[in-house]
Design a protein around this nucleic acid. Structure first.
Lengths: 146, 146
DNA sequence: GTATACTCTACTAAGTTTATAGAGTTAGTA
DNA sequence: TACTAACTCTATAAACTTAGTAGAGTATAC
Protein backbone atom coordinates (compact mmCIF):
# COMPACT_ATOMS: atom_id res chain seq x y z
CA UNK A 1 0.00 0.00 0.00
CA UNK A 2 1.34 3.32 -1.05
CA UNK A 3 -0.47 6.62 -0.90
CA UNK A 4 0.68 8.66 -3.89
CA UNK A 5 0.34 12.39 -4.24
CA UNK A 6 -2.70 11.76 -6.36
CA UNK A 7 -4.26 9.72 -3.58
CA UNK A 8 -3.32 12.30 -1.01
CA UNK A 9 -4.85 15.08 -3.09
CA UNK A 10 -8.00 13.07 -3.66
CA UNK A 11 -8.43 12.47 0.06
CA UNK A 12 -7.90 16.12 0.89
CA UNK A 13 -10.33 17.23 -1.81
CA UNK A 14 -13.02 14.85 -0.61
CA UNK A 15 -12.45 15.99 2.96
CA UNK A 16 -12.70 19.66 1.98
CA UNK A 17 -15.97 18.92 0.22
CA UNK A 18 -17.16 16.93 3.22
CA UNK A 19 -16.58 19.85 5.56
CA UNK A 20 -18.69 22.01 3.25
CA UNK A 21 -21.31 19.36 2.59
CA UNK A 22 -24.74 20.91 2.03
CA UNK A 23 -23.45 24.39 1.28
CA UNK A 24 -23.38 24.27 -2.53
CA UNK A 25 -20.51 23.94 -4.95
CA UNK A 26 -16.82 24.69 -4.55
CA UNK A 27 -14.57 25.57 -7.49
CA UNK A 28 -11.42 23.69 -8.36
CA UNK A 29 -9.57 26.92 -7.81
CA UNK A 30 -10.77 27.22 -4.22
CA UNK A 31 -9.98 23.60 -3.47
CA UNK A 32 -6.55 23.89 -5.03
CA UNK A 33 -5.49 26.94 -3.09
CA UNK A 34 -7.06 25.71 0.15
CA UNK A 35 -5.21 22.42 0.04
CA UNK A 36 -2.14 23.69 -1.81
CA UNK A 37 -2.55 21.37 -4.78
CA UNK A 38 -1.40 22.13 -8.37
CA UNK A 39 -4.56 23.29 -10.12
CA UNK A 40 -4.22 21.30 -13.32
CA UNK A 41 -3.39 18.15 -11.44
CA UNK A 42 -6.40 18.58 -9.18
CA UNK A 43 -8.60 18.92 -12.26
CA UNK A 44 -7.66 15.41 -13.28
CA UNK A 45 -8.09 14.04 -9.80
CA UNK A 46 -11.57 15.53 -9.50
CA UNK A 47 -12.59 14.16 -12.90
CA UNK A 48 -11.48 10.75 -11.73
CA UNK A 49 -13.39 11.11 -8.46
CA UNK A 50 -16.42 12.09 -10.50
CA UNK A 51 -16.18 8.97 -12.63
CA UNK A 52 -15.88 7.01 -9.42
CA UNK A 53 -19.13 8.46 -8.14
CA UNK A 54 -17.60 10.31 -5.24
CA UNK A 55 -18.27 13.85 -6.41
CA UNK A 56 -20.58 15.67 -8.77
CA UNK A 57 -19.92 18.77 -10.80
CA UNK A 58 -21.83 21.69 -12.12
CA UNK A 59 -20.50 23.39 -15.23
CA UNK A 60 -20.84 26.95 -16.34
CA UNK A 61 -20.28 30.21 -14.65
CA UNK A 62 -21.44 29.34 -11.14
CA UNK A 63 -20.05 25.87 -11.47
CA UNK A 64 -17.96 23.79 -9.14
CA UNK A 65 -17.82 20.50 -7.32
CA UNK A 66 -19.81 18.95 -4.53
CA UNK A 67 -19.96 15.59 -2.81
CA UNK A 68 -22.14 12.99 -4.56
CA UNK A 69 -23.10 11.25 -1.31
CA UNK A 70 -23.33 12.02 2.37
CA UNK A 71 -19.88 12.09 4.01
CA UNK A 72 -20.99 9.30 6.32
CA UNK A 73 -21.31 7.06 3.30
CA UNK A 74 -17.75 7.54 2.09
CA UNK A 75 -14.97 5.61 3.80
CA UNK A 76 -11.34 6.58 3.56
CA UNK A 77 -10.69 3.11 2.17
CA UNK A 78 -13.10 3.67 -0.72
CA UNK A 79 -11.19 6.68 -1.98
CA UNK A 80 -7.77 5.12 -1.41
CA UNK A 81 -8.64 1.93 -3.29
CA UNK A 82 -10.28 3.81 -6.13
CA UNK A 83 -7.46 6.26 -6.69
CA UNK A 84 -4.33 4.38 -5.67
CA UNK A 85 -5.44 0.84 -6.36
CA UNK A 86 -5.54 -2.26 -4.14
CA UNK A 87 -4.14 -1.88 -0.65
CA UNK A 88 -2.55 -5.32 -0.71
CA UNK A 89 1.23 -5.08 -0.19
CA UNK A 90 1.94 -7.70 -2.85
CA UNK A 91 0.10 -9.00 -5.89
CA UNK A 92 -0.28 -12.56 -4.71
CA UNK A 93 -2.79 -11.53 -2.04
CA UNK A 94 -5.20 -9.75 -4.35
CA UNK A 95 -8.44 -11.55 -5.01
CA UNK A 96 -8.18 -12.80 -8.56
CA UNK A 97 -4.59 -13.97 -8.23
CA UNK A 98 -3.83 -17.56 -9.11
CA UNK A 99 -0.07 -17.30 -9.66
CA UNK A 100 2.06 -19.15 -7.11
CA UNK A 101 2.70 -22.48 -8.73
CA UNK A 102 3.11 -24.16 -5.37
CA UNK A 103 1.02 -22.06 -3.08
CA UNK A 104 1.73 -24.29 -0.09
CA UNK A 105 5.29 -23.11 -0.22
CA UNK A 106 4.47 -19.46 -0.07
CA UNK A 107 5.03 -19.03 3.63
CA UNK A 108 4.54 -15.29 3.42
CA UNK A 109 1.08 -15.24 1.93
CA UNK A 110 -0.59 -15.50 5.32
CA UNK A 111 1.39 -12.54 6.55
CA UNK A 112 0.39 -10.35 3.62
CA UNK A 113 -3.20 -11.37 4.08
CA UNK A 114 -3.03 -10.36 7.72
CA UNK A 115 -1.49 -7.05 6.74
CA UNK A 116 -4.24 -6.43 4.20
CA UNK A 117 -6.93 -7.19 6.75
CA UNK A 118 -5.31 -4.92 9.31
CA UNK A 119 -5.13 -2.04 6.86
CA UNK A 120 -8.72 -2.56 5.79
CA UNK A 121 -9.78 -2.68 9.42
CA UNK A 122 -8.45 0.83 9.81
CA UNK A 123 -9.23 2.66 6.59
CA UNK A 124 -12.67 1.11 6.22
CA UNK A 125 -13.68 2.24 9.68
CA UNK A 126 -13.22 5.95 9.19
CA UNK A 127 -15.76 7.91 7.19
CA UNK A 128 -15.40 11.43 5.91
CA UNK A 129 -18.11 12.46 8.33
CA UNK A 130 -15.79 11.46 11.16
CA UNK A 131 -12.93 13.44 9.69
CA UNK A 132 -15.08 16.46 8.87
CA UNK A 133 -16.35 16.53 12.43
CA UNK A 134 -12.78 16.55 13.74
CA UNK A 135 -11.88 19.44 11.45
CA UNK A 136 -14.93 21.44 12.49
CA UNK A 137 -14.15 20.91 16.16
CA UNK A 138 -10.65 22.20 15.69
CA UNK A 139 -11.91 25.20 13.81
CA UNK A 140 -14.32 26.02 16.67
CA UNK A 141 -11.65 25.58 19.28
CA UNK A 142 -9.43 27.87 17.28
CA UNK A 143 -12.02 30.64 16.95
CA UNK A 144 -12.80 30.49 20.69
CA UNK A 145 -9.15 30.95 21.51
CA UNK A 146 -8.91 34.29 19.76
CA UNK B 1 4.05 -0.31 1.97
CA UNK B 2 4.82 -2.20 -1.15
CA UNK B 3 6.70 -5.45 -1.42
CA UNK B 4 8.70 -5.35 -4.66
CA UNK B 5 10.11 -8.33 -6.47
CA UNK B 6 13.42 -7.53 -4.84
CA UNK B 7 11.83 -7.65 -1.42
CA UNK B 8 10.00 -10.82 -2.25
CA UNK B 9 13.20 -12.47 -3.48
CA UNK B 10 15.07 -11.33 -0.38
CA UNK B 11 12.45 -12.82 1.92
CA UNK B 12 12.43 -16.11 0.03
CA UNK B 13 16.22 -16.29 0.05
CA UNK B 14 16.44 -15.65 3.78
CA UNK B 15 13.73 -18.23 4.38
CA UNK B 16 15.51 -20.82 2.26
CA UNK B 17 18.69 -20.19 4.26
CA UNK B 18 16.71 -20.37 7.49
CA UNK B 19 15.35 -23.78 6.63
CA UNK B 20 18.91 -24.98 6.05
CA UNK B 21 20.39 -23.13 9.01
CA UNK B 22 23.31 -25.04 10.49
CA UNK B 23 23.93 -27.19 7.43
CA UNK B 24 26.65 -25.19 5.72
CA UNK B 25 26.56 -22.93 2.70
CA UNK B 26 24.15 -22.77 -0.21
CA UNK B 27 25.14 -21.46 -3.62
CA UNK B 28 23.34 -18.64 -5.38
CA UNK B 29 22.61 -21.08 -8.14
CA UNK B 30 20.79 -23.44 -5.80
CA UNK B 31 18.82 -20.65 -4.19
CA UNK B 32 17.88 -19.20 -7.56
CA UNK B 33 16.58 -22.42 -9.03
CA UNK B 34 14.87 -23.44 -5.81
CA UNK B 35 12.94 -20.20 -5.52
CA UNK B 36 12.71 -19.50 -9.27
CA UNK B 37 14.59 -16.20 -9.12
CA UNK B 38 16.71 -14.73 -11.96
CA UNK B 39 20.28 -15.61 -11.03
CA UNK B 40 21.90 -12.25 -11.69
CA UNK B 41 19.19 -10.41 -9.85
CA UNK B 42 19.52 -12.70 -6.85
CA UNK B 43 23.25 -11.99 -6.79
CA UNK B 44 22.53 -8.35 -6.14
CA UNK B 45 19.88 -9.09 -3.58
CA UNK B 46 22.22 -11.37 -1.65
CA UNK B 47 25.02 -8.80 -1.72
CA UNK B 48 22.60 -6.29 -0.28
CA UNK B 49 21.48 -8.72 2.39
CA UNK B 50 25.13 -9.31 3.21
CA UNK B 51 25.76 -5.59 3.65
CA UNK B 52 22.71 -5.51 5.88
CA UNK B 53 24.17 -8.18 8.11
CA UNK B 54 21.54 -10.78 7.36
CA UNK B 55 23.72 -13.26 5.52
CA UNK B 56 27.37 -14.19 5.25
CA UNK B 57 29.21 -15.58 2.29
CA UNK B 58 32.10 -17.84 1.61
CA UNK B 59 33.98 -17.35 -1.62
CA UNK B 60 35.90 -19.82 -3.69
CA UNK B 61 35.15 -23.22 -4.99
CA UNK B 62 33.06 -24.55 -2.13
CA UNK B 63 31.56 -21.15 -1.53
CA UNK B 64 28.03 -20.06 -0.94
CA UNK B 65 25.77 -18.21 1.42
CA UNK B 66 24.57 -18.83 4.93
CA UNK B 67 22.57 -16.97 7.50
CA UNK B 68 24.56 -14.52 9.63
CA UNK B 69 22.34 -14.95 12.70
CA UNK B 70 19.98 -17.49 14.12
CA UNK B 71 16.62 -17.48 12.28
CA UNK B 72 14.90 -16.61 15.56
CA UNK B 73 16.78 -13.33 15.56
CA UNK B 74 15.55 -12.19 12.15
CA UNK B 75 12.08 -10.75 11.87
CA UNK B 76 10.21 -10.48 8.60
CA UNK B 77 9.95 -6.76 9.25
CA UNK B 78 13.72 -6.39 9.44
CA UNK B 79 14.23 -7.73 5.94
CA UNK B 80 11.27 -5.85 4.48
CA UNK B 81 12.38 -2.50 5.87
CA UNK B 82 15.97 -3.04 4.85
CA UNK B 83 15.26 -4.05 1.28
CA UNK B 84 12.06 -2.20 0.38
CA UNK B 85 12.34 0.78 2.68
CA UNK B 86 10.01 2.19 5.33
CA UNK B 87 6.66 0.48 5.68
CA UNK B 88 4.82 3.76 6.19
CA UNK B 89 2.16 4.26 3.52
CA UNK B 90 2.99 7.94 3.10
CA UNK B 91 6.05 10.06 3.75
CA UNK B 92 4.49 12.33 6.36
CA UNK B 93 4.37 9.51 8.89
CA UNK B 94 8.03 8.57 8.74
CA UNK B 95 10.11 9.54 11.73
CA UNK B 96 12.22 12.42 10.56
CA UNK B 97 9.43 14.15 8.67
CA UNK B 98 8.66 17.72 9.55
CA UNK B 99 6.80 18.77 6.42
CA UNK B 100 3.11 19.56 6.86
CA UNK B 101 3.05 23.30 7.38
CA UNK B 102 -0.14 23.06 9.37
CA UNK B 103 0.02 19.65 10.88
CA UNK B 104 -3.17 20.15 12.83
CA UNK B 105 -5.01 20.18 9.56
CA UNK B 106 -3.67 16.89 8.38
CA UNK B 107 -6.64 14.82 9.41
CA UNK B 108 -5.21 11.72 7.83
CA UNK B 109 -1.93 11.58 9.68
CA UNK B 110 -3.43 9.65 12.58
CA UNK B 111 -4.82 7.09 10.18
CA UNK B 112 -1.49 6.50 8.50
CA UNK B 113 0.18 6.20 11.87
CA UNK B 114 -2.36 3.57 12.89
CA UNK B 115 -1.74 1.72 9.64
CA UNK B 116 2.00 1.76 10.23
CA UNK B 117 1.60 0.42 13.74
CA UNK B 118 -0.72 -2.30 12.57
CA UNK B 119 1.71 -3.41 9.88
CA UNK B 120 4.62 -3.38 12.30
CA UNK B 121 2.57 -5.37 14.76
CA UNK B 122 2.34 -8.13 12.20
CA UNK B 123 5.67 -8.22 10.40
CA UNK B 124 7.71 -7.65 13.56
CA UNK B 125 6.08 -10.57 15.27
CA UNK B 126 7.09 -13.26 12.84
CA UNK B 127 10.65 -14.56 12.80
CA UNK B 128 12.27 -16.73 10.18
CA UNK B 129 12.42 -19.50 12.74
CA UNK B 130 8.62 -19.49 12.84
CA UNK B 131 8.43 -19.64 9.07
CA UNK B 132 11.14 -22.26 8.73
CA UNK B 133 9.33 -24.46 11.24
CA UNK B 134 6.14 -24.22 9.19
CA UNK B 135 7.96 -25.21 6.06
CA UNK B 136 9.63 -28.17 7.74
CA UNK B 137 6.29 -29.38 9.10
CA UNK B 138 4.78 -29.29 5.65
CA UNK B 139 7.71 -31.17 4.21
CA UNK B 140 7.31 -33.88 6.87
CA UNK B 141 3.58 -34.11 6.31
CA UNK B 142 4.28 -34.45 2.63
CA UNK B 143 6.77 -37.26 2.99
CA UNK B 144 4.46 -39.19 5.34
CA UNK B 145 1.66 -38.98 2.82
CA UNK B 146 3.60 -40.81 0.13
C1' DG C 1 46.60 -23.22 -12.57
C1' DT C 2 42.07 -23.93 -13.33
C1' DA C 3 37.36 -24.42 -12.28
C1' DT C 4 33.86 -22.62 -9.43
C1' DA C 5 31.52 -19.31 -6.95
C1' DC C 6 31.16 -14.78 -4.94
C1' DT C 7 31.88 -9.32 -5.98
C1' DC C 8 31.15 -5.10 -8.12
C1' DT C 9 29.81 -1.52 -11.43
C1' DA C 10 27.36 -0.11 -15.21
C1' DC C 11 23.66 -0.20 -18.20
C1' DT C 12 18.88 -0.50 -20.05
C1' DA C 13 13.97 -1.25 -21.07
C1' DA C 14 9.59 -0.57 -19.21
C1' DG C 15 6.45 1.36 -16.21
C1' DT C 16 4.75 4.83 -12.84
C1' DT C 17 4.35 9.29 -10.94
C1' DT C 18 3.68 14.09 -11.12
C1' DA C 19 2.82 17.19 -13.28
C1' DT C 20 1.96 20.90 -17.56
C1' DA C 21 -0.34 22.54 -21.97
C1' DG C 22 -3.93 23.70 -24.62
C1' DA C 23 -8.14 23.25 -27.08
C1' DG C 24 -13.04 22.30 -26.24
C1' DT C 25 -17.71 22.58 -23.80
C1' DT C 26 -21.31 24.48 -20.70
C1' DA C 27 -24.03 27.89 -18.56
C1' DG C 28 -25.03 32.25 -16.25
C1' DT C 29 -25.58 37.16 -17.25
C1' DA C 30 -25.06 41.98 -19.12
C1' DT D 1 -25.99 37.61 -28.47
C1' DA D 2 -21.42 37.92 -26.63
C1' DC D 3 -18.62 37.31 -22.94
C1' DT D 4 -16.70 35.11 -19.13
C1' DA D 5 -15.94 31.79 -15.57
C1' DA D 6 -15.63 27.15 -14.78
C1' DC D 7 -15.62 22.30 -15.93
C1' DT D 8 -13.83 18.52 -19.69
C1' DC D 9 -10.68 15.96 -22.23
C1' DT D 10 -6.43 14.40 -24.54
C1' DA D 11 -1.69 14.67 -25.17
C1' DT D 12 2.90 15.19 -23.68
C1' DA D 13 7.04 15.08 -20.87
C1' DA D 14 10.52 14.99 -17.19
C1' DA D 15 11.96 12.43 -13.26
C1' DC D 16 12.03 8.41 -10.81
C1' DT D 17 11.59 3.44 -9.76
C1' DT D 18 11.64 -1.32 -10.90
C1' DA D 19 13.37 -5.52 -12.78
C1' DG D 20 16.61 -7.45 -15.08
C1' DT D 21 21.11 -8.08 -17.99
C1' DA D 22 26.16 -7.86 -18.99
C1' DG D 23 30.64 -8.46 -18.12
C1' DA D 24 34.95 -7.96 -15.92
C1' DG D 25 37.13 -8.86 -11.46
C1' DT D 26 38.47 -11.58 -7.05
C1' DA D 27 38.98 -15.53 -3.89
C1' DT D 28 39.68 -20.37 -2.83
C1' DA D 29 39.71 -25.54 -3.07
C1' DC D 30 41.91 -29.07 -5.36
Amino acid sequence: MKITYKGDYALKAVLALSVRYGTGVVTIHELASEADIPLKFLEQVLLELKRGGFVESKRGKIGGYLLAKHPAEIKVGDVVRFVDGPIEPITCVEKKYSGCRDIYKCAFRGIWQDVSKAISGIIDNVTFEDLARQIKKRQEAFSYSI
